[in-house]
């Protein structure tokens, strides 16, 4: 077996040179190797979204992504949201609308919201977009579909949708 692989990860603006077992997921790399425990493991199979981070600006499930595949990528996690203008607004809106209870899915939800808003600005459609040929207004139905990859078992969904509405209004 080939053993460990050298990897350079840029996480929240900081470069990390690591040597990793190729089985290590980006999620476990962040949590167990880099001490960035804000990103959570809820299923380890891409079925809950708690592990959502941004990789080169796009939201992904870090639990299904081998860390070695992220060599050279820019990774952004919840820990960097406080330094991001939009991220901070999303965090504040979550607080105002109680878009969280236990807090376990919250990091993934917030990373997902930030990326979702960028996707929407870029004109990406969703499964509920009726007219694929033009931009879709970000209705509640659109928000819910675009956030469907982030499960919340406490059921903070209403507050999250309200928070997103507020962020898009201002």
């Amino acid at each position: 077996m080939s053993g460990h692989i050298p990897v350079r990860l840029h996480v929240n603006g900081q470069a990390h040179d690591l040597s990793l077992d190729p089985r290590v997921t980006l999620l476990d790399c962040l949590r167990e190797h880099l001490g960035l425990t804000g990103t959570k493991k809820g299923c380890d199979q891409g079925a809950c979204g708690a592990c959502t981070v941004l990789a080169d600006g796009e939201r992904i499930n870090s639990c299904l992504t081998p860390a070695v595949q992220c060599d050279g990528m820019e990774i952004v996690t919840i820990e960097a949201m406080a330094n991001d203008e939009l991220g901070t607004r999303v965090q504040d809106a979550f607080l105002a609308h109680d878009g969280l209870q236990c807090g376990y899915c919250t990091s993934g939800q917030i990373c997902s919201v930030v990326a979702m808003l960028a996707e929407h600005r870029a004109g990406r459609p969703s499964a509920v977009t009726e007219d694929l040929t033009g931009p879709a207004p970000l209705t509640d139905v659109e928000i819910r579909e675009r956030m469907a990859g982030n499960l919340c078992r406490c059921g903070a969904y209403n507050g999250i949708v309200a928070a997103i509405r507020e962020v898009t209004r201002t």
Binding site: R31, T37, F94, L100, T106
Partner: peptide, 20 residues
Amino acid sequence: ARLDGPAKVSGGIRYTADRV
């Protein structure tokens, strides 16, 4: 607003599995 909210929205709460 919930008092532990700021820590939760910034990923700052340490849950059990976050202990290393």
